[in-house]
Amino acid sequence: MPVDFGKEVDYVAHLARLSLEPEEKECLAGQLSEILETARRIQELDTAGVEPTSHVTELPAVLRDDSVRPSLPLNRALQNVPQREKSFVKVPRITASELEQD
């Protein structure tokens, strides 16, 4: 079953916050369909009951002590900020559709 990425491009581009030119979209739709088509070959493998590997290191997390270490000086922390406003980082207008929950 071929993967048709054409219908998904807009949705995925929105999820990824990527503005794409029409030609880019068309090109991507074709390439991504092809890549996913190939990737789907893994469906042939029987993985029933197989634990997924998310880390190759089979060790538990190391915990650090709760000690405060110096933060970056303010000007260091903000040295790459495109738009500053005093010690804040300036952010464009937030639209209702962008409000997300945590």
């Binding site: 709760d66 405060v68 270490r69 903000l78 010690s87 804040f88 980082v89």
Partner: peptide, 22 residues
């Protein structure tokens, strides 16, 4: 906690914006 969950920055409330950052 005294420091943040994943770094050593202080969790103190208030203070100059962006001064407890790494």
């Amino acid at each position: 906690t005294a420091s943040k969950l994943f770094c050593g920055c202080s969790t103190t409330f208030g203070g100059e914006p962006n001064s407890n950052c790494c």
